[in-house]
Design a binder for these strands. Sequence first.
DNA 1: CGAGTGATTGAAGTGGGTCAACCCTCGTGG
DNA 2: CCACGAGGGTTGACCCACTTCAATCACTCG
Lengths: 243, 243
Amino acid sequence: MLMKTQVRDQNMSNIACSKCHTRKICLPMDMTEKDINDFESIVLLRKAIKKGNYLISAGMGFNAIFIIRTGFFKTSIISPSGQEHLLGFRMTGDTLGMDGIPTRQHLSDTVALEDSNVCVIPFTEIEKMASVSPVFLNHIFQLLSRELVRENFNLLMLQMSAEERLASFLQNLTKNLQIRGFSSSEVLLRMTRQEIGQFLGLKLETISRMFAKLSKSGVVSINRRHLHILNSAALQKITGIPN
Amino acid sequence: MLMKTQVRDQNMSNIACSKCHTRKICLPMDMTEKDINDFESIVLLRKAIKKGNYLISAGMGFNAIFIIRTGFFKTSIISPSGQEHLLGFRMTGDTLGMDGIPTRQHLSDTVALEDSNVCVIPFTEIEKMASVSPVFLNHIFQLLSRELVRENFNLLMLQMSAEERLASFLQNLTKNLQIRGFSSSEVLLRMTRQEIGQFLGLKLETISRMFAKLSKSGVVSINRRHLHILNSAALQKITGIPN
DNA sequence: CGAGTGATTGAAGTGGGTCAACCCTCGTGG
DNA sequence: CCACGAGGGTTGACCCACTTCAATCACTCG
């Protein structure tokens, strides 16, 4: 079933990580030319996901991890009480599906918020490669623990006030956009107020009000999904987190 | 400096994991006799930690992971605003210090809440063993992702009401005690109301009030640190999480 | 053009925070 | 052996940040 939706990319005879624009983000810094070639050889597939579609569903069997080439995703879980909670948003170069490693079963949903494109990396290949290349094994550890750091941060965020939460969300978002070479002052939000709220543990009305507040104080200007960061220093001041 | 506080256990000529009572919790199920013997050979040290002392400080260099033989710990981080937030409590058989793997530097503090005893496992040995034993490599993955699952759960918890948070804290605690063969109905709390609050994102007064509420409705009885779970089915009902 | 979804804004309600007083227990030292 | 102090816990009164409910607005897309 998975195979049916996977298609070999038509635009390239083979997948050249060494020439990919996300290289700097999805591969470890200290990989040699040879390491990269080895890695290329196990990234055999691309997969396109339309906006609104699931790349991963909770409970689904785990057999590959994904790296986002282009697009934007949200990851979420349904709480026992039936509410959806967002674990985070992922963009170009981010890894998806790591949470399936332990149990060989995915724990969370991953949905495309715009038409997207991912590389598919079979986990058996990853294991093989990790067992012969310490550099690569270390990279996998790094990826896993990057997740841990992210979640730690989210935990801290949930203890802040509504304004601080939204400010750190925006700070984080723009930092990630900047790292990837996108504009960090002019942003098209890919998610609804409701989704931001589900991520930050707030109601959509509160998100709207906090945007209004940040707007009134001249920190941002916002019109529906079009966001301008006018004063990123002020954002830092609100969160207390240096960039 | 680390060496100074590490002492070879005096009571045993060498450390026998195969005979240790925490074996079922800290080692993977599918380890062969040989695997266990190999593992034993790299667990060379024990370390005793007095109540109130740090086993790990944030920022400290990472070179070993620890497994709790006896005792009880809290792990915490200081937020940019200077507040202490608890990431969780750890008991017999739990692993400590995994968060240092990525950066080779610990991210959080770990403090003993009672006099405790841990096994010290040098990370270089773990890496060596992981590169030759797929079973062991897999175990390390399992441990890392167990952390991820735990944090996911904490995120969900922070979206619940005060009563629900305390109930799921108690549910979790008693489940863990039960797995380890302790009484799950009669518990001596190792932490203060303040620490429970720092973990659940609530103030200590709120914890006290919620204990009073659970007490009034006959779910628990509590006197300072002495807790009795009178109706664990009611706890489940409050959290909505089956056991 | 009209329906539907997402966003904004106001008014009223409430869960948990804040502040403060008081209690209990335990350890310490006169 | 008792007095004392300190730290942890409880409880009440009040407050406020966020939620809830509801009305209205603004795009977008059949």
